[in-house]
Structures are given as C-alpha cells and as structure tokens.
C-alpha cells in the first residue's frame, strides 16, 4: 500500500496523513498483542519494532511541533507581521514629515533637556546657512547653546518674547537670520560676479546692513564715477531703507549724470543688489530706468 498516494488522494495531506498514521498505529498495537513465533527471532523483531516506534514517535513529534507552529502562525503571526509592517510604514511617514519641516525654515529635535531648533535661511530660492538654538525647557526658558552670529541681536529678541511666546521668538529670530543671510548673499554675489564693476572691495559691516562701494554702470567704462552707500535700518529686511549715490567723477556733472544717479538710487532701493548689476552688465540701465518710473 502506497501511503504517499493515500495521503495525496485524501486531498488534505496534513490531516489525512496524521489520521492515517493514527489508524496504522492502532492497528500495529493490536497486532503486537497477538500470539508470536520463535523467541529469538521474536525478540529481534520486537527490538526492531521498538526502534522503529521510537523513530516514528520522534518524527511524529517533530511533525506535530512544526504543524502547530505553521497553524498558529497562519493567522496571528501574519497579523503581527502586518501590524509591524504598518508600524514601520507609519514610522517612515512620520520621519519624512519631520524632515519636511526644514522646508518651513524651522525644524527641530527633542533633546533630554528640551529642544534643539534648527533655523534654515534662504534668499530668493537660494538655500543658505542654517543655525541652531538649543533650548532648555524649564521656567524660565533658557538658551543652552546656539550658533547665531554674535552681531545678531539675539538677547534683544529673546528679551522681547522668549519667555512669553516661544513661537514668536523663533519666528522673529528666523526673520533676523534670513534677512542677514539675504543681505550677505547679495553683497557676496556683487563682489564675486561683478568685481569688474567695482573700483575696489565692497565695504561692509558684520551685519551687512551698511554697504558702500565705488562703481561704474557701463561694462566698457574706464572710470568708476559713482559711490553708493546702502543702509538697512530695519535688521529684518533685505532691501536698503536708505540709499545714497554720489557722483565721484572729476568732470562737472551733466544733467544726464544726475538722471543716472537718481535712477541708480531708485534701482538699488527696489531691487536686489546683484540684480541691479546684472542689469548694468546687460546694458539695460536705461530700460530699467524707463520701467522704474
């Protein structure tokens, strides 16, 4: 009798075979109780039977152990795995969203003492430096460490709202840092991209809220007839509040010089510094003048 065939014919291999095994075992027990032949051959056969039974029992135990595991894992294990995968997916989502906060300009990480806030700066699409402020959350709120440059009036901003409105404090600091980064970026770009238009290095203070430079507006010109002084009174802005352009030429200024000077003042007050010089480089000064008024 082919057992393998029997089991597969029954359609339920696991249950069928086990049931069959039980039937066979019951039958073998009955046979064991029946009268036996010669004692020597009998004892040899008996020991063989015992050996086979031990082997069978071991095998059956192994099968049953495995079967139990498979059956148990069929439902709960799958659910556990699903929930773990769901958890994992959720964790990845949360992690991604946390990272996305840097695009708001303000992100942070919880620390054992409080929170370490990261402030990202940019000027018109150019992503610039980022700064951190490590805060100890207790009463009163305390700044533990920070990378804010010394010339940024951090203490003044903190005195205004750190204790009363942390959110306002951080956004105000954001405003200051972004404005500083923006002014510095414009000055850097002017110096790096339009050095040929400048008579010497651009003079600036650390906050980059006072700039002065001697320049020309025509790419081909030999002389540097103008001197500009830009003041940003409000430290949270990237366009100057006061602009003065003076004529430095040796010739007596003609009416056209005066017209140019006035148009430069207007351009510098309303457009980013490097954009003004980009217009000069393209020879668009006149066009800009017409557009400006």
């Amino acid at each position: 009798m082919d057992l393998a065939n029997t089991s597969s014919q029954e359609g339920e291999p696991k249950g069928g075979v086990l049931a069959h095994l039980e039937r066979l075992e019951a039958r073998s027990r009955k046979k064991f109780e029946e009268p036996q032949g010669t004692p020597a051959a009998e004892s040899a056969l008996r020991s063989k039977i015992l050996q086979l039974r031990r082997l069978r029992d071991q095998l059956r135990a192994a099968v049953e152990r495995h079967g139990a595991r498979v059956e148990a894992s069929a439902e709960p294990d799958q659910a556990l795995q699903d929930s773990e995968q769901a958890l994992e997916r959720k964790r990845e989502d949360v992690k991604a969203i946390l990272q996305a906060y840097r695009f708001t300009g303000l992100s942070g990480k919880l620390t054992s003492r409080g929170v370490c806030v990261c402030i990202q700066t940019a000027f018109q699409g150019n992503l610039l430096d980022s700064y951190f402020v490590d805060l100890v959350i207790q009463k009163p709120l305390r700044i533990h460490h920070h990378s804010v440059p010394v010339f940024i009036p951090l203490e003044e901003i903190a005195a205004k709202s750190l204790q009363t409105d942390l959110r306002h404090f951080l956004f105000s600091l954001c405003e200051h840092l972004n404005a500083y980064a923006g002014r510095k970026y414009q000055a850097d770009r002017l110096q790096s991209d339009f050095a040929a238009f400048l008579a010497g290095p651009l003079q600036r203070n650390a906050l980059c809220n006072l700039l002065s430079f001697t320049y020309k507006a025509e790419p081909g010109g030999q002389a540097f007839p103008f001197c500009a002084r830009l003041l940003y009174k409000d430290l949270t802005v990237t366009l100057p509040t006061d602009v003065s352009v003076t004529y430095e030429g040796t010739d007596t200024p003609s009416p056209s010089w005066e017209e140019q000077r006035a148009s430069h003042e207007h351009l510098l007050r309303t457009k980013p510094l490097h954009h003004v010089f980009a217009a000069f480089a393209r020879g668009e000064e006149r066009l800009e003048l017409r557009l400006a008024y």
């Binding site: 057992l3 393998a4 089991s7 291999p13 696991k14 075979v17 086990l18 069959h20 095994l21 066979l24 075992e25 073998s28 086979l52 082997l55 069978r56 095998l59 059956r60 099968v63």
Partner: peptide
C-alpha cells in the same frame, strides 16, 4: 508509517 511521516 515512518515513510509517510517523512513525506509529511
């Protein structure tokens, strides 16, 4: 029986 168990 053992053969069957092995198969199983």
């Amino acid at each position: 029986e053992i053969a069957a168990l092995k198969l199983l």
